[in-house]
């Protein structure tokens, strides 16, 4: 029996939903340092004293050796485009009037990076390895959107 038979009255169905109001996600000790940093216009990473790996966003443990990480460091904000994509349609399939460029931004000597919007760059001129920097909002509240976007370093 096809599901379309439902609409011909041949069978019955029930509807329900997961009656969960919301989820409350704590930042935890690692991400808290990162978001507090953004509020101050800084990018904060964490560094494992055993392996020397610097993690962005910061974690309180090292994935290489599971040591506790207590050292948090501000990193230089000059990044590079590691990869990018150009969004033509939104998640409902509607065409966007203005294309949005999304990029994975890497930083020297850092494991990880930041995925964010790239603005002030024409699609034709982007390349992997392109130097970029973050543009912070005037009013910041400790969110990933405290960075308005990344743009090319002049």
């Amino acid at each position: 029996m096809s599901v379309w038979d439902v609409f011909n009255g041949k069978t019955r169905f029930l509807e329900d939903n997961m009656n969960v109001d919301k989820f409350v996600y704590t930042l935890g000790h690692g991400y808290e340092k990162f978001f507090n940093g953004l509020k101050e216009g800084k990018i904060i990473a964490s560094k494992c004293s055993e392996c020397g790996v610097t993690y962005l966003p910061p974690r309180i443990y090292c994935e290489e050796c599971l040591s506790e990480i207590t050292e948090f460091v501000e990193i230089k904000q000059n990044g590079v485009v590691l990869g990018y994509t150009i969004q033509n349609v939104d998640k409902d399939g509607r065409h966007l009037k203005e294309k949005v460029i999304w990029a994975l931004i890497g930083f020297n000597g850092v494991r990880g990076g930041i995925f964010h919007k790239l603005v002030g760059v024409e699609p034709e001129e982007i390349y992997v390895g392109m130097p970029v920097k973050p543009v912070f909002r005037e009013e910041r509240k400790g969110s990933i959107n405290d960075i308005q976007y990344f743009t090319k370093t002049v």
Partner: peptide
């Protein structure tokens, strides 16, 4: 707990 799921798991694993 304020710790994230990951932070809790790490603490026990370590």
């Amino acid at each position: 707990m304020y710790e994230t799921s990951r932070e809790l798991a790490w603490e026990a694993a370590k």
